[in-house]
């Protein structure tokens, strides 16, 4: 069994779309001046890398990793094993999303505190200020 040219093209296109989106959001984190914009870009960067991790476990003509019938028939279990996608990246990404949310909310609180102290969220102006 092998994939056709068109299927190969679409899989490659999905991969490159995700990589280019990650590149654009890295530009947003590094080069945009506003701290709020940096946080928005950081959330997009996390999203793209989480999806890239899940994409590693993907295969064509597959089903989700959830068993639908609860009987001990070994033939059905073998069929499930060969047709489902990889559950391990999904389990790791699941916790990564929730912890990423908690850490990003902490970053938002830090940005609020920066605004209370410096009266601006422009990173170039913050660099010039003292104290």
């Amino acid at each position: 069994m092998s994939t056709s040219f068109l299927e190969n093209f679409f899989i490659t296109l999905i991969l490159y779309n995700l990589l280019v989106a990650a590149g654009i959001s890295i530009y947003g984190v590094v080069a945009r001046p506003s701290i709020t914009k940096k946080i928005i870009s950081l959330t997009i960067l996390q999203d793209t890398f989480n999806i890239l991790a899940i994409f590693l476990g993907f295969k064509v003509f597959s089903i989700p990793p959830v068993l639908l019938e609860l009987d001990s028939d070994i033939e059905k279990l073998l069929a499930f094993t060969t047709s489902a996608v990889d559950p391990l990246p999904q389990a790791l990404v699941l916790t990564a999303i929730v912890i990423g949310l908690a850490v990003n909310l902490f970053l938002i609180f830090l940005a609020l505190q920066v605004f209370r102290l410096y009266r601006t969220l422009d990173s170039r102006k913050i660099k010039e200020l003292k104290g």
């Binding site: 989480n50 959830v66 999904q90 999303i97």
Partner: peptide, 30 residues
């Protein structure tokens, strides 16, 4: 990509909670 678990956690987090928190931040700052 056949990841229904991630859809369930990703939908409220990134469509509901992130925009809400970021809009609170934008509303309180610039």
């Amino acid at each position: 990509l056949r990841a229904p678990d991630i859809v369930l956690v990703y939908l409220p987090v990134t469509v509901g909670l992130y925009p809400a928190a970021l809009l609170f931040l934008v509303g309180k700052t610039e």
